[in-house]
């Protein structure tokens, strides 16, 4: 009889632990097993990405459409190359789409906002966005302001 209580409570424990793991995966990380998981990668060159991190969100009009997959530097031109993983299979965003780095709130995280253009041609896997606007760096802004004030 004693062994039976042991078996039942052990079984309950293992089940509870497994359920907790599943709960973490589904409820906490929000994994959606049914959704279309295909994605394509688009690059963008920025003069400054200060504060942008991998896994930062990429959005269009405030709606998240992807994530920053990698940030590399092009030593030759002194530019940052950001790879973005976008949902879907490409062929939707126009070739002249612009990308800008923005900040969520005052102290929030940096993210990339895409501004779709009007070109007939569309971006597909591996294409590069040319029209970019880098991160606004507070020190540079203040520096600008000071020189302008001094000039006037």
């Amino acid at each position: 009889m004693l062994m039976r209580t042991v078996e039942i409570s052990t079984g309950a424990f293992v089940l509870a632990g497994t359920l907790a793991l599943i709960f973490l995966a589904v409820r906490i990380s929000g994994v959606n097993l049914t959704a279309d998981r295909s994605s394509y990668t688009v690059m963008a060159r920025f003069n400054d990405v200060a504060g942008l991190q991998t896994r930062a969100k990429v959005s269009i009009a405030g709606v998240t459409v992807g994530r920053v997959a990698a940030i590399d530097v092009d030593m030759e031109y002194g530019e940052a190359i950001v790879s973005m993983e976008l949902k879907g299979s490409g062929g939707v965003l126009s070739m002249d789409t612009g990308a800008q780095i923005l900040t969520e709130g005052i102290l929030g995280a940096r993210y990339i906002n895409l501004l779709p253009g009007a070109d007939e041609e569309t971006l597909s896997d591996g294409d590069v966005i040319e029209d970019t606007q880098g991160a606004m760096v507070l020190e540079n802004l203040i520096g600008d302001l000071v020189t302008r004030l001094g000039a006037s």
Binding site: V14, A16, G17, T18, L21, F23, L24, I28
Partner: peptide
């Protein structure tokens, strides 16, 4: 080996 990972998962869920 089996118990601690399960306990950790339970800990995380309860703590959240």
């Amino acid at each position: 080996f089996v118990s601690l990972p399960l306990l950790t998962a339970i800990f995380n869920v309860v703590a959240i």
